[in-house]
């Protein structure tokens, strides 16, 4: 792990000594990280958007070839190829990124909690806040929760796109298998939806415990992700969810108003 964290920490210290401000150094560090990652994230978000738009066709493929996994995968690949999508990244990048994620956390934590690194004294004040201590004002925790909610809702797949193709496969066995596949998919979707509301709460609570600098890093990253997602893929699930929330509130108010008229 040291081979990863040491250069990152060095870079952070370099930024700190150049800008002379602790909070600014973290902000610039986050922005540079995201700019470096842009060549990876931009195509990934774009292809994800394309795959989402292909969902009806993918569902149809699942219905017809659900019983034959190999054929299904081949047909999926053909569909992707036809639309110039390369979805395959594999799990190695995923694991690598997870390691980097932990390394980043460690680096920031060391940077935040040590008063002095390599003889350089670090001043952790930023806008009247001590970034080495948890944020007592709850501004950063609330911000991190709200931004996390926005991002999660934006990327929520299958809000209204539930497939309406009837399950009319010929043999009973295929029908049953389709049903099973559907159940698994529904469960995965339900779990994803649960996460949408779990994550902001967990993030918010965690942000009250961690040093404020870490919470700030989290908020900046989330805002950057929201902007990137919006630019490349649009508001996504945000539109339909705000509409739903709006109509729910209106319904509630309307009901109350109606009640008052009655009285």
């Amino acid at each position: 792990m040291n081979f990863l964290t040491a250069p990152l920490l060095q870079f952070l210290i370099f930024l700190y000594t150049t800008v002379g401000n602790f909070g600014l150094a973290i902000i610039i560090f986050t922005l540079i990280l995201r700019l470096v990652l842009a060549p990876l994230s931009v195509p990934a978000i774009k292809s994800q958007k394309k795959i989402q738009s292909l969902k009806p066709e993918l569902d149809r493929l699942k219905k017809t070839h659900g019983h034959d996994q190999k054929l299904l995968q081949q047909e999926q690949m053909n569909l992707y190829k036809k639309h110039n999508i390369n979805p395959a990244a594999g799990c190695l990048p995923y694991i690598l990124q997870f390691v980097v994620l932990i390394a980043l956390y460690q680096v920031l934590n060391t940077f935040l909690t040590s008063n002095e690194i390599n003889g350089i004294v670090i001043n952790t004040q930023f806008f009247g806040m001590n970034l080495a201590q948890p944020d007592g004002t709850y501004i950063l925790p609330i911000l991190s929760g709200i931004t996390q909610l926005i991002l999660s809702v934006m990327i929520l797949p299958g809000v209204e796109g539930h497939d309406l193709i009837p399950n009319n496969a010929k043999s009973k066995k295929i029908q049953q298998e389709n049903k099973k596949e559907e159940n698994v998919q529904e469960m995965a979707e339900a779990m994803q939806k649960q996460m949408v509301f779990m994550m902001p709460v967990v993030t918010g609570i965690a942000a009250t415990r961690f040093p404020a600098g870490l919470a700030m890093y989290w908020v900046i990253s989330t805002v950057f992700s929201i902007g990137q997602q919006w630019l490349l893929s649009g508001p996504g699930g945000l539109t339909s969810y705000t509409k739903q929330a709006y109509s729910w509130i209106r319904h509630r108010l309307g009901w109350q108003a109606g009640n008052k008229e009655f009285l």
């Binding site: 995968q73 990244a89 594999g90 990124q97 996460m195 990253s221 997602q229």
Partner: peptide, 28 residues
């Protein structure tokens, strides 16, 4: 169960989540 949480963290910090080509997933 925790995988969606890790996904959300990756999405937050890196802006994207590397997707897998396998279906069903390796864990299933």
């Amino acid at each position: 169960f925790i995988r969606p949480g890790i996904d959300a963290m990756q999405k937050t910090i890196f802006g994207y989540v590397p997707q897998c080509k396998h279906s069903p997933t390796c864990s299933d």
